[in-house]
């Protein structure tokens, strides 16, 4: 899978929750207040289901989830390991 496809799909998942706020792939979606704790959990389930892997405790660094680029890197790493 193309890495850019991942950030595009994650954006598609998040956008309805975020309404009309524009954000780039490198914006911190947590710091911008775009993602709350419920959405963070939904995001974890979305990624696990869509890309068919399981997160582990070691992945649980919020840094990994802060921007679309970082999420894309994390997913790519996980898929590489699988």
């Amino acid at each position: 899978m193309q890495a850019e496809t991942i950030s595009h799909e994650v954006r598609g998942f998040l956008e309805p929750y975020i309404d009309d706020t524009e954000f780039s792939n490198d914006d911190d979606i947590f710091e911008m207040g775009l993602v709350n704790s419920l959405m963070a959990m939904q995001l974890v389930l979305f990624l696990e289901k869509r890309y068919a892997f399981k997160f582990e405790g070691a992945d649980l660094d919020l840094v990994n989830f802060r921007t679309l680029t970082r999420i894309q890197d994390l997913v790519t790493r996980k898929l590489g390991k699988a």
Partner: peptide, 9 residues
């Protein structure tokens, strides 16, 4: 988990 992931996850 990791430091920082305690609440959100």
């Amino acid at each position: 988990g990791r430091i920082g992931g305690g609440f959100s996850h």
